[in-house]
């Protein structure tokens, strides 16, 4: 349904745009109909950039993103509108997702004006109320309110309801629960999982592995713009193969097992080889050595890919 083909995004940084930063480096993966894919990575790994490229808020430097076989970069006015009718996003910060000056109803009004001008006000209103109930909100409690009068969880659910009212086919969920409290977090996750059962595809962007495990079918582990490990969620979590994935798994704060603390505060030995073609994780890797040059993405078992030179050795 949504296919990323060798997508790369390079930013020019520095005073005169002299330095180049590869935020996303040759990333390819796909999301099928009715599938939740978790995109996991730390800050600066390029995960948000990928989400924004799918929403066409940012253009890739090279590579293509295909939606149902069509390159979204080629879409002109009407095609783009049609694309947005099917593909929507929910962002990290629920409070900044709303213009503080308007009532929250505005997100629904705009959607009707821009995408469904033929639907009458009453019918639209009924649809909104129905969907609000389905995301666990009481329409009377939330409609007609200003964003600051509602909680983060309510605002985030309103945005999901907006996607439902529009009956979208694909949702980019960028860290949508990281700003929510534990008590409401899980409800929003459950909601996403229920939507998936009704045929919606979701790209679930997160840095929290346990959340990713809870709802996703496939997992993509991203490190400094490159996919390090990719495949079936169960396989990745039960038999992580990349040293980065392993270190991530060990760092998850769990409530059934305590961390093994390292005694010395000093962490990560700085390695001195400066070769642009070295594995990106090399400088933090406990297995890395000089032979870790441009590791390819290898299929270690069915539906499980790993980018590491040390696989099998």
């Amino acid at each position: 349904m949504m296919v990323l083909e060798n997508v790369t995004k390079i930013y020019r940084i520095g005073t005169f745009g002299g330095k180049r930063l590869k935020a996303v480096d040759d990333v390819s993966f796909e999301i099928d109909e009715g599938e939740i894919v978790s995109l996991i990575g730390e800050s600066g790994s390029g995960k948000t950039t990928i989400g924004k490229m799918i929403l066409r808020l940012i253009r890739p430097t090279s590579g293509r993103i295909l939606f149902n076989g069509k390159d979204i970069g080629q879409f002109k006015k009407n095609e783009l509108k049609d694309y947005y009718r099917k593909v929507q996003g929910v962002f990290q910060d629920p409070f900044s997702s709303y213009n503080p000056l308007y009532k929250v109803d505005r997100i629904f009004d705009i959607a009707r004006e821009e995408f469904f001008p033929d639907i009458g006000r009453n019918e639209w209103k009924n649809r909104i109320e129905e969907k609000l109930r389905s995301v666990g909100l009481n329409p009377l409690e939330v409609l007609g309110k200003f964003p600051h009068q509602l909680s983060g969880g309510q605002l985030q659910r309103l945005l999901i309801a907006r996607a439902l009212v529009m009956n979208v086919r694909f949702l980019v969920a960028d860290e949508i629960i990281s700003m929510l409290d534990a008590s409401t977090r899980i409800d929003v996750l459950n909601l996403l999982a229920e939507l998936k059962d009704s045929g919606l595809s979701i790209l679930f962007i997160t840095h929290d592995l346990s959340l990713g495990y809870y709802i996703s079918d496939k997992t993509v582990i991203l490190y400094r713009g490159s996919i390090m490990e990719y495949g079936d969620t169960e396989k990745i979590f039960n038999s992580p193969a990349h040293p980065y994935t392993i270190s991530l798994m060990e760092s998850i704060p769990r409530i059934d097992e305590r961390w093994r603390m390292r005694s010395a505060v000093i962490q990560g030995k700085e390695k001195s080889i400066r070769n642009g073609r070295m594995c990106k994780f090399y400088h933090r890797c406990f297995k890395g050595d000089e032979s870790c040059v441009e590791p390819p993405l290898i299929e270690v078992e069915k539906d499980h890919f790993v980018r590491c030179s040390k696989i099998g050795t």
Binding site: S210, Y213, Y214
Partner: peptide
């Protein structure tokens, strides 16, 4: 949420 708990198997509640 904990590692080892999946939505399909056990649904957590807020």
């Amino acid at each position: 949420p904990k590692i080892g708990i999946k939505y399909g198997e056990r649904k957590l509640k807020g």
